[in-house]
């Protein structure tokens, strides 16, 4: 760079050609308007169809959507989801810990578990657990390869619902383990080092320092898994368990009204998935504390800010 003397310094005033005084106009996008309108028309057509097409048979929908048998079936679906989630993630956490442990034997066992349960289709597993009594008539606790002290009939221990929960939880655990492991690996190694340098005991390091930070990476994937499990429970209809999808099939088998009853199931699945998504939003927000300089506003805060802005503009 060469030194510029004050006399030679370029003038900061706009040139005298008048360009500096012209109005600035943003680029126009006429196609946005056209495509937007087209989308609106198509959406209106679809909604109109929902309302007037007699095939949807809304009176039948209304009869069944809050009927006792459907509500009970929704309960079973929620129960299967809850058990599958809690047991699956608890076992998944253990497997993730094994995979991250220093012992090659434990690491291999955990790896094999994940490999096996991700390889076998869920529906095959479910039918297999349902037929466990064929392989093992009785299950006992005792000395390995030796005598057992107590034993139970497999069918008493594991009814159809038990077999379904077992299958869902074992399947879920394989995926949960990988999600948890991924979250833990994403935590900066310096965090563990700092905790170790401060002499914080091992369990507390994991519980207070690593897990809360890992949760940020775990949560979006875990929520995906819970939602997919929630809908995936419909697969246990193969075991004749009265969850939502099975119950709907029973009813339309009897009445022949397939479409409105499928809508009953659809509406329940959509409603509950929406509820789960809301829970996800708030839990994620909780674990994001400290991660950014300023916490992003909640949707409620955003709405209020928008309303205030409009009011101020009017005033």
């Amino acid at each position: 760079m060469t030194a510029v003397t004050p006399e030679k310094a370029p003038s900061l005033r706009p040139p005298a050609d008048g360009v500096g005084e012209l109005t600035i106009v943003p680029h126009r996008r006429p196609w946005r308007l056209v495509t937007g309108l087209a989308a609106l028309v198509l959406s209106a057509q679809f909604l109109h169809g929902l309302a007037v097409n007699p095939g949807w048979d809304w009176p039948t929908f209304r009869t069944f959507v809050f009927s006792d048998s459907i509500l009970r079936a929704v309960g079973v679906t929620l129960q299967l989801t809850a058990y599958g989630t809690v047991l699956g993630f608890a076992l998944g956490a253990v497997i993730a810990a094994l995979r991250l442990s220093g012992s090659p034997i434990l690491r291999t066992i955990a790896w094999t578990y994940v490999w096996a349960f991700r390889s076998i289709p869920l529906i095959v597993q479910l039918v297999f657990w349902f037929n466990l009594a064929y392989l093992y008539r009785r299950i006992g606790i005792g000395i390995p390869f030796g005598p057992s002290f107590v034993s139970f009939g497999t069918m008493d221990l594991l009814g159809a619902l038990g077999a379904a929960v077992l299958g869902l939880a074992l399947h879920q655990a394989a995926y949960a383990a990988e999600i948890i492991r991924g979250g833990v690996l994403a935590v900066d190694a310096g965090q563990l080092e700092a905790a170790a340098a401060l002499g914080i005991p091992r369990f507390r390091q994991a519980w207070r320092i690593v897990l809360p930070q890992a949760m940020r990476g775990i949560l979006p994937n875990a929520a995906n898994e819970v939602i997919s499990l929630f809908k995936g429970t419909s697969i246990v209809y193969v075991m004749a368990i009265g969850e939502l999808f099975y119950q709907v099939q029973v009813i339309y088998g009897r009445t022949g009204r397939v479409v409105p009853l499928l809508m009953v199931a659809t509406v329940w699945y959509v409603l509950l998935t929406t509820a789960l998504s809301l829970v996800q939003y708030w839990v994620e927000r909780y674990f994001a504390r400290g991660s950014e300089r300023h916490a992003p506003p909640t949707p409620w805060q955003r709405l209020r800010a928008a309303v205030t802005e409009i009011k101020e503009k009017r005033a």
């Binding site: 700092a194 401060l198 002499g199 207070r208």
Partner: peptide, 29 residues
């Protein structure tokens, strides 16, 4: 870990716990 409580270590990249407040960072150990 017990021995390390008698040695203070300050890292180049601070390694503060981002999910804990400043006070909680100091109280944790």
């Amino acid at each position: 870990l017990k021995q390390r409580t008698r040695l203070g270590f300050v890292f180049q990249n601070f390694n503060l716990f981002p999910h804990l407040t400043v006070l909680e960072n100091l109280v944790e150990a």
